[in-house]
Structure formats: C-alpha cells, structure tokens
Nucleic acid binder design. Sequence first.
DNA 1: AGAATTGATATATAAATCGACATCAACATC
DNA 2: GATGTTGATGTCGATTTATATATCAATTCT
Lengths: 197, 197
Amino acid sequence: MPYATDEIVKQLRETRERKPLSQRELSQLSGVPQAQISRIESNSIDLRLSTLIAIAHALDLEIALVPRKAVPAIKSITRQTMDAASIQAPEIAREMRRLRASIHRTQVAFPSLPQNEDLRSSFMFVQQWPIPANDFGTLRSIRVALERAIGNHSSDDVADVINDFRSLRNRIAHAPPASDRDDQTRPAYSLDEDDDG
Amino acid sequence: MPYATDEIVKQLRETRERKPLSQRELSQLSGVPQAQISRIESNSIDLRLSTLIAIAHALDLEIALVPRKAVPAIKSITRQTMDAASIQAPEIAREMRRLRASIHRTQVAFPSLPQNEDLRSSFMFVQQWPIPANDFGTLRSIRVALERAIGNHSSDDVADVINDFRSLRNRIAHAPPASDRDDQTRPAYSLDEDDDG
DNA sequence: AGAATTGATATATAAATCGACATCAACATC
DNA sequence: GATGTTGATGTCGATTTATATATCAATTCT
C-alpha cells in the first residue's frame, strides 16, 4: 500500500529468488517470521527499519543513503555485482536448490568433515555463473552421490564429489562469454524480468 | 535503542546539518513532525520505511540496497558527492541560514520576480563549496541588501544582489584548492567530526 | 533585555507493525 | 497417489510507531 517502498521491496524479493532461498529459509537466516516476509514481499506493508536491515543483512545487502546525484553511478555499480549473481533457468534453479539441501544434509551427517568447506565454496562459486542447461545432469549426479554417501555413512565418498564439483566449477567459469553457443542453452536467464512497474 | 540503524540515522542528521536545515524546516519539507524527527535523530527509535523515505527524499537522498561486495565502491562515490556539500565553519553556516531565510522572504515578497530563480540557484551553488571566513561580510551584505529591498518594496534592488551573488559564486568556485591560504581561514571545516561510533 | 528559534521531551490517542501461531491451495517429490 | 514444501492469508495480543500538542532550557536575534 505505501509509496516508493515498492522498489526496495522488489529488490529484496529479487535478491532472495536469485540466491535462491525460500521464504522460510530466509526467515531462519534473518529471524523474521515467514508470514511477515510474505506480507512484506507481496503486499508491501510498512516495515520498520530494523526489520529491513535484518532481512537485508541475511541477503548480504547493506542499506545505503546516497545523494540523488550519485544514484546513476551507484546503480551502475550495483548492476554489475547484482547481475553477477545470475538468474538460472528454472530447472537449473530447482536443481541447485536440491543440491544446496543435500549439501546441508551432508554437513549435518558429517559435521567434522574438512571437505564441507570445499562443498560450500564450490556451490557458492558455481552459483555466481550462468549454468548451461546441459549441465543439469552434472548437478544431479553430484547431488545423488552426496545422498548416497549420506545413506552409506561413508564420508569417504564425498571426496569424489568434491572433484566432480571442482571440474564443473572450472568448466563453467571458463566457458565462452555467452554470445552464441548454438545449442538451446540459454546462457543467462533474462535479467530484466519485469523491470517496469 | 536498535542495532545498526545508528549509522543511517547519523547520516540523516549529518545531511540535515549540512544543508543546513532546522528540524522544523525539515519537518515542513518531509511532512514528519519535528518531535518525531528529534526522537529519530537523538534517541533512534525504530522508524518505519515510509518515514525514512520521506525524510531522505526531503534531504535529496535515496535509499539503496547494495550488495556487501559493492559497499566500498559505493562509499567512495558517496564520499565524493557528500563531501562536496561541505560543512561550513559555524559562523558561516549561521549566516547561510539567515541568508536562506532572507531569500525565502524575498520570494514571498515578490512572488513573480524572475530573479528569484537566480537567487535560489546561486545559493544552492555556493552552498556546495567551502566558504572562506573572510567572505562572511559578503554574505552579510547580500542578505542586508535583500532585506532592504523587501522593506522598500522595490524589487529592482534585487538585481544588484544577483550580481554580488554571482561574483561571490565565481570567486569561491575558482578559489585555490584549499591547501594553504596562510590566513586563519579554515578552507574547509573538519570533515570527520566524530566519525568514530 | 526582550522576543524568537532551536532541539529535546511529556502526554494522550489512533493506528500500525510484529510475532506466534494456524491454515490453505499449488506444486514438487518420491 | 501420498507426502512435503512453498508462498499467501487469517487471527490475536503485545508492543511500538506516528501524530497532535504543549512545554522547556539554551541560544540566537533584534
């Protein structure tokens, strides 16, 4: 209902979906109830500054008061870093969510496993890049391997996963800069969604 | 009482004092009661986003959500533009406030005077620069001339003021970049005030 | 010195957020 | 097809903001 809060709220939701986090996950990270997050995102209630900060911090965002004159420059910078966290195609995004869940389960199953850090960083890294659709299988196999390791209580199997993950990481990072790979791969998902509004 | 709202609130007050606006003036501009502004600035209550936006807009500020990674770059930009609106020495700041009041009275006295726009823009421009203490008299004489014009109901006298104002404007803008003008002139006022938190 | 302005507070009322539930339809997963 | 998850809503109660006024000490202006 309120005024120009829309743009900020929109940015919150967009950032959350890029991670991608569910409202309940964000709730856990930020301490703000899921119901409240939903109300904030959809209907835009007039939230308090502390709530805004809590959510923003959970999303690795900071709140800045910038002079009107500086807004264009600021936007150009934030676009760069924001777009770096690219929106994945829906199927990829879903698989990445599943993978994240599996990684989490792995960390719970083998809490003191040193490779956990590798898993986390590889995931964070890969997430930053547009993942081609033909790597869907790669993601899936990584996840399956993880789940199997959990099921077998054999933390050793995780090591193989790390290697697969690393090679995926390198392949994606060094991929051609997304001009024309003629297959149906949509190298990055449409960035502007519904930018009007 | 809340957490990291302090920094934002601090920035609001600092910006207001740089203009310089009184809490009551800012109240008129933003629509937020003076009592509320005082509470926000001093005691830091947990204000709503719409209130924050109202005040920020009145101060020519925008609220931006920036990725953590981009914060240093952002800060460097905002510093540039923020410091451009320099803090004046206290006596100068006071005189500028009086001058602004006089300009406002002039605009009320002669509403359809075309020079009003010149007055406004010259003021806004000069305000952006560090004003040397020895120009105190210049500011004062400009103000006195304005008040006399108002008293005499002679809008013609305003023209002279415009010229004085313009020359001040040029002199200040082309002044040496504030390294050592050996007189007691503090070219810019200490920028960091109490930057520690 | 007397008048006006500044920022800080006090009080009382209306309205809103916030949190902790619970529930629901749509969709995903197995 | 059964189960689980996601986002959107509903309600209730406690807390808080926000607004409107009024006041006050400290400066500042005339």
